[in-house]
Nucleic acid binder design. Structure first.
Length: 337
DNA sequence: TAGGCCATCTGGTCCT
DNA sequence: AGGACCAGATGGCCTA
C-alpha cells in the first residue's frame, strides 16, 4: 500500500533523468509537466502502477533494513542491491515517460490523419468538427456511396445519396451533412441562372446527382426523391481536387454532366431547400464567407426539418472543400455578369 | 448535472 | 530489449 505520492524530489530526479537520457524529438507540449505528473500519480491511487511503485519502495525499505542489520560485506551487498533498485526504478520511470511521449505522438499522428480525413469527406467545418467516430462513419459511407456509383454506373438521386452518407450517423452530424448538402444545392440553384454550374472545378458543385437510380438501394424507412425534381450533376471530384490540388482526371468525364433542373425543396424531413432564398443567393451571400448552417433547437425528431436561416447568422462555419479565393473570384465573376 | 468527446497515462501483448 | 499497438481508466471540457 503506497501512501507516499511522488514528491518534488522524485519529480526533480525525473527531470534530471530526462536531461541525462535526452530525447531525440523534444516537443514542448509532449514534455510532461511536473505538476501534471504529480496529479497523475495522485489520480492513480487505485492503479496497478501505484502498486508497482509501492513494491519497489518496499524493496528499498527491506534493503535499508539489511543495511542496518549487517555491516561489511552484507551491507555492501545491500547497498549494491539498493543502488540497483533505484537505477532500475529510475529507468522504469524514464522508460515509462518515453513510452508516454511516443504514445502521445502516435495519437497526435492519428488525430492528424483524422483531420486529413475530415477535409475530404463531404462535410467539413473548422469550428464544428466532426467527432472521430462520426468522421470514420461518414468516410465509410462516402466511400461506399461512391463505390456504389462506380459499380452501378449511374448516379443516385440526391436523397439516396444523402441517406447513404448519413447511415448510422448521429442526428447532429446528419444535420451538419444536410447543411453542407443544402449549401451545395444553393449553388446548384444558382447555377441554373448562369453558366458557372458547368464549371468543372467549381468548388461549390461538390455533389449532386441528376436523376434517380433505382439500382441504388434506399434504406428501409427512408423516403424517396421525387423523380420529377431531377438534379444538376454534382462534382465527385472535389475531394480529389482539394486533396491533390489538381483537377481530377474524372472530372472531364461527360458522364458527370447532365441537364439542369430545379432542385427539391424538401426531402422527406431530412432537410429542406428554400428556393426563394437560393434565388437570392447572389444578392445576400458573399461567397468568401464561411458557409454556415443553423442546427435546429433541441434534438431533431423525425419530423424535424433542417433549414437554413434567411439571414446569414450562423453558429458555425461550414467550409466547403476547396473554398478559396479562386472560388470567390469565380462566383463574383458570375454575379457581376 | 449527466452525458459525450477527448487527451493522456498505463500495462499488456506482439513483433523485430 | 525496445518499440508499436491496443484497450482500459481517468479527469477535463463542453453542451443540452
Amino acid at each position: 500500500m503506497l501512501t507516499l505520492p511522488f514528491d518534488e524530489s522524485v519529480v526533480m530526479s525525473e527531470s534530471q533523468m530526462c536531461r541525462k537520457f535526452s530525447r531525440e524529438s523534444e516537443d514542448p507540449k509532449q514534455i510532461k509537466k511536473p505538476e501534471s505528473f504529480g496529479k497523475q500519480i495522485t489520480h492513480q491511487g487505485k492503479s496497478i502502477k501505484r502498486l508497482t511503485v509501492e513494491d519497489t519502495e518496499k524493496e528499498e525499505v527491506e534493503d535499508d533494513r539489511e543495511e542496518e542489520d549487517e555491516n561489511g560485506l552484507p551491507r555492501r551487498r545491500g547497498l549494491r542491491k539498493k543502488k540497483m533498485t533505484k537505477i532500475r526504478m529510475d529507468r522504469v520511470k524514464f522508460r515509462r515517460q518515453e513510452a508516454n511521449a511516443r504514445e502521445r505522438n502516435r495519437m497526435h499522428g492519428l488525430n492528424d490523419a483524422l483531420d486529413s480525413l475530415r477535409k475530404v469527406v463531404p462535410c467539413y467545418s473548422k469550428t464544428q468538427k466532426l467527432s472521430k467516430i462520426e468522421t470514420l462513419r461518414l468516410a465509410k459511407n462516402y466511400i461506399w456511396a461512391l463505390s456504389e456509383i462506380l459499380r452501378i454506373g449511374k448516379r443516385p438521386d440526391l436523397l439516396t445519396f444523402v441517406q447513404n452518407l448519413c447511415k448510422g450517423l448521429s442526428q447532429p452530424t446528419t444535420n451538419l451533412v444536410a447543411g453542407c448538402l443544402q449549401l451545395n444545392a444553393r449553388s446548384f440553384l444558382m447555377g441554373q441562372t448562369g453558366e458557372t454550374a458547368h464549371h468543372a472545378r467549381s468548388p461549390y458543385t461538390t455533389f449532386y446527382p441528376p436523376y434517380h437510380s433505382p439500382e441504388l438501394s434506399t434504406p428501409p424507412g427512408h423516403g424517396t426523391l421525387d423523380n420529377s425534381k431531377s438534379m444538376k450533376p454534382y462534382n465527385y471530384c472535389s475531394a480529389y481536387e482539394s486533396f491533390y490540388e489538381s483537377p481530377s482526371p474524372e472530372c472531364a468525364s461527360p458522364q458527370f454532366e447532365g441537364p439542369l433542373s430545379p432542385p427539391p425543396i424538401n426531402y422527406n424531413g431530412i432537410f429542406s431547400l428554400k428556393q426563394e432564398e437560393a434565388l437570392d443567393y447572389g444578392k445576400n451571400y458573399n461567397y468568401g464567407m464561411h458557409y454556415c448552417a443553423v442546427p435546429p433547437r433541441g434534438p431533431l425528431g423525425q419530423s424535424s426539418v433542417f433549414r437554413l436561416p434567411t439571414e446569414s447568422h450562423f453558429p458555425y462555419d461550414l467550409h466547403l472543400r476547396s473554398q478559396s479565393l479562386t472560388m470567390q473570384d469565380e462566383l463574383n465573376a458570375v454575379f457581376h455578369n
